[in-house]
Computed example of a mutant assay.
Amino acid sequence: MSTTTKKASRIIKAKTIQQVNRELVMRKLNITEEVYFNMMLDAGTEYLTDVLLSGWPVGDISGTELYWKWWYNHWHQWDAQFLTESRREKKELHADLYMRLHDASDRGYFPNKEIMDTILRRRHNG
């Protein structure tokens, strides 16, 4: 099997796991897909504006594809962590646990230099 084929297989497997995890999260939290995606986008926007670019005008962030890939990757990791940890929690605590695990503002997470340069260049060129 070629390296390209192996990489494509890993990507397909990761996306399948993310999709299954997303479905499980939505079931555990009793939310729709629309609510799930709005939470992810709102949290990503808030993190960008309040943590990474605190106090700077953000402008149009829709073109920062690298940032959003980075954000989705972390979000899916936090979903997996939630699914593991929620097994030990009472159902009525799931929503609080989910929000706590998905709060990146106090975790010291920062995109790599390439992503930050893209964000800052986009902000500067507006």
Rank of each mutant, 00 (worst) to 15 (best):
H94L: 09
E65M: 09
N21Y: 11
Y72M: 08
K13V: 07
R27Q: 11
I115W: 01
W75N: 03
A43M: 08
L93H: 15
F37A: 07
D60F: 01
I61W: 14
N38R: 09
R100I: 01
R88S: 14
I17D: 13
V25Y: 00
Y109W: 15
Y47Q: 02
L48A: 03
A95S: 12
V51M: 01
G63M: 01
V20D: 11
I11E: 10
M99A: 13
S2D: 15
R107S: 06
M1E: 06
Q19R: 10
V25T: 00
M40L: 15
S2T: 12
L24V: 09
E34D: 15
S9R: 13
W71V: 02
H76Q: 09
M26V: 06
F110D: 00
W68P: 05
L53S: 09
S62R: 07
G55C: 05
T49D: 05
H76S: 10
I61E: 04
L93V: 06
G59I: 02
I12L: 09
I17M: 07
Q77P: 01
R123V: 14
E89A: 15
E114R: 14
Y98M: 01
G44Q: 03
A14I: 11
A95F: 13
T5A: 13
D79V: 05
T4R: 14
H76M: 03
H74V: 07
E85W: 01
A104N: 09
N21L: 04
E23A: 15
Q77T: 04
N21I: 06
A95C: 08
G108D: 07
R10T: 02
E92G: 04
R27I: 09
K113M: 10
N30R: 15
V25N: 05
L53A: 10
F110S: 06
V58A: 11
G59W: 03
D79W: 02
A43G: 12
S9H: 14
K113F: 07
S105F: 02
W71P: 03
P111Q: 10
S9N: 08
Q81M: 10
S54I: 00
K113V: 03
R121H: 14
E46G: 08
N38C: 04
S86F: 03
A43Q: 11
R10G: 00
T118V: 12
W70T: 00
S54P: 00
A104K: 06
E85L: 12
T84H: 06
M1Q: 07
S2C: 10
E46R: 14
W75E: 05
Y72E: 04
